[in-house]
Design a protein around this nucleic acid. Structure first.
Length: 562
RNA sequence: CGGGGCGUAGCGUAGUCCGGUUAGCGCGCCUGCUUUGGGAGCAGGAGGUCGCAGGUUCGAAUCCUGCCGCCCCGACCA
């Protein structure tokens, strides 16, 4: 491709709206342009990369027996009503105004619709069906460029099996395929066990990439590979101490002391000697949550313990429930359920609120003074805490979800009546799995991990072109003639070449554009070297330049672009 | 949906507080000449409903009201 004839609108300046590196680079290198919040056009260069990623996905999916579909984005609403997901998605689903259609945010329903009545016998399975298509979700806040859009490209696959063992096998196949895909794309990722949320089903794993632009927080142990979403992550519990001599409960006047920090300051004690109380409402009933010191309640863990949704009590509800306002609430004589973090188990001589404004109590022994207290893991873990598996230090950081594999079960086959008949003539719902990859996220994550101050650093696998041929002064016939020869020869040899043949652009401009676009190898043809029949070759990954003979070019390229 | 910021030429921005020439600058774009190993030089040129709609005023990019859009934080997130 000759740059003089192509549409690759690079930008020298950083666009005001782009914040994270991948977004900046995609815009600056002319891969995408935004049309509206969370809605992007892929320009030729960006689309070339998307196609390369898609092709890798396709190859790996086909290798495990996947068959590609092309499905409608426009779906009759009633199919989605059969599985109750119009309600489940709520405002996240786009609705068509002048007909009862919705824009598909994913494709479980449509795939199941096609399975119904066709996968009739156990002999018809297993099957793996997939598609690589655009999905639509009315995200309240699109962000980070293509990482969270209202319209995005997703590969999703569905497996159909007759037994849980069969599902296990399909799941394992996808797990392997996903590792191959991300490995081939050159992305550094890790795998997190996760809850499957609104998708339903049991086991699921997320393929994650560490990034400050991520929307999930995860804990990761580099030593043993333990990885978990912060919502469920565990660390070794460091319990509060238990003194040999237990005091009796006594009341302390603590005027204007509200926070744990103020209490510690006032009494000259350590925060580990305190038990913080938070009131939550669950099923309309108040529950007192006790945490050590300033530890925060992890509401996801709390919901797992209690089952169903919880909310923290409104300030005006507190005194009805406890007799005191926030800052003076505690477990002693509390009339409702008490749940404490495991850290507090066995602790004594603790300080907490007195359920009377401006008073606290000391000398609390939870086992003695609040014997009905239940103990659970309720706190969010932090970086530096010990891994429960190997006692190494855990890291807690943000991550982007690239892919997600679920064991769905029968939610959709039951909802839509997709049944099969087994060996004994009995009818059962098909057992399904669901497996997604955010295709644009693969691109964004790759860029997050592979760039420097000057621009992108492509590997040969995903690079939109293999090499960047730069003719420095195209008005020189020697240079332009040589470049044309190289260009033609390289193409004949099967390389994808981007040829900067512009004759009105200075050398520095071309170099900087080349670094920005980041193709793996730059071939620089300039008058100075060409006089000696030499050209320069630069590897973008390490910016190493070498002067080589024109005759050695093709062999050198073969080495570099293996 | 809550908090904060922003909206001026294709891109990046000054001017807005304190209303008053022809809305300024850099990049990019067009023409010509020169230039070609790290974002060239000179000369000339084009390009603006100052987000939209009302209002105040002799006069509005600037003040007031409403709306829209975009970014960041939070809530939400298969």
């Amino acid at each position: 491709m000759k740059i003089s004839k192509s549409f690759i609108p690079t930008l020298k300046e950083v666009p005001a709206d782009a914040v994270i590196p991948s977004h900046v680079l995609m815009i600056r290198s002319g891969m995408v342009r935004m049309v509206s919040a969370g809605i992007y056009s892929f320009l030729p260069l960006g689309y070339k990369v998307i196609r390369k990623i898609s092709e890798i996905i396709r190859e790996e999916m086909n290798a495990i027996g996947g068959q590609e579909f092309h499905l409608p984005a426009l779906n009759p609403k009633e199919i989605w009503e059969a599985t109750n997901r119009v309600e489940a998605f709520g405002d996240t689903m786009f609705h068509i105004k002048n007909r009862d259609y919705v824009l598909a945010p994913t494709h479980e329903e449509i795939m199941t619709f096609h399975a119904k009545g066709v996968l009739k016998s156990y002999k018809d399975m297993p099957q793996i069906w997939y598609q690589i298509q655009t999905k639509f979700r009315n995200e309240p806040r699109p962000r980070s460029g293509v990482i969270r859009g209202r319209q995005f490209l997703m590969k999703d696959a569905y497996s159909f099996d007759t037994s849980l063992e069969g599902l296990d096998k399909s799941y394992e196949l996808h797990d392997k395929a996903y590792r191959n895909i991300f490995d081939r794309c050159g992305i550094k990722y890790f795998i997190v066990g996760a809850s499957s949320g609104a998708m339903g089903g049991s086991k699921s794993e997320e393929f994650m990439v560490q990034s400050d632009a991520g929307e999930d927080t995860v804990a990761y142990c580099e030593n043993c590979g333990y990885a978990a979403n912060i919502e469920v992550a565990k660390s070794v519990i460091d319990p509060v101490k238990r003194d040999d001599v237990g005091k009796e409960v006594y009341e302390i006047s603590t005027p204007d002391v509200k926070s744990i920090d103020e209490l510690c300051e006032f009494l000259k004690i350590d925060e580990r000697e305190t038990a913080k109380s938070r009131i939550y409402i669950h099923d309309g009933k108040p529950v007192l949550i006790l945490m050590s010191g300033n530890d925060d309640v992890n509401e996801s863990k709390l919901e797992l313990v209690l089952g169903g949704n919880v909310r923290s009590a409104h300030p005006e509800e507190l005194s009805d429930i406890t007799g005191a306002d926030a800052g003076s609430i505690g477990p002693i004589d509390f009339k409702h359920r008490i749940i404490a973090d495991l850290r507090l188990k066995g602790g004594n001589n603790l300080y907490s609120g007195a359920n009377k404004n401006d008073y606290h109590v000391g000398g609390i022994d939870l086992e003695r003074d609040a014997p009905k207290t239940e103990y659970f893991d309720l706190r969010s873990i932090e970086s530096g805490e010990k891994c429960t598996r190997c006692d190494s230090e855990l890291a807690v950081f943000k991550a982007i979800e690239l892919g997600h594999i679920f064991k769905l079960g029968t939610k959709y086959s039951e909802g839509l009546g997709a049944n099969f008949v087994d060996e004994n003539g009995e009818e059962h719902p098909i057992i399904m799995g669901s497996y997604g990859i955010g295709v644009e996220r693969v691109l964004a994550c790759y860029l997050e991990q592979n760039h420097d101050d000057n621009g992108i650093i492509w590997d040969n696998t995903l690079a939109p072109f293999h090499c960047h041929l730069i003719g420095l002064n195209m008005k020189s016939e020697l240079i332009s003639g040589t470049c044309e020869d190289i260009y033609t020869t390289l193409q004949k040899k099967g390389y994808e070449v981007l040829f900067d043949d512009r004759n009105d652009v200075s050398a520095g401009f071309k170099f900087n554009d080349a670094d920005l676009l980041g193709l793996p190898v730059q071939i620089v043809v300039g008058e100075r070297n060409l006089k000696e029949n030499m050209i320069e070759i630069k590897e973008r990954r390490n910016n190493e330049k070498q002067k080589i003979s024109l005759d050695d070019l093709y062999q050198k390229l073969e080495e570099l672009l293996k």
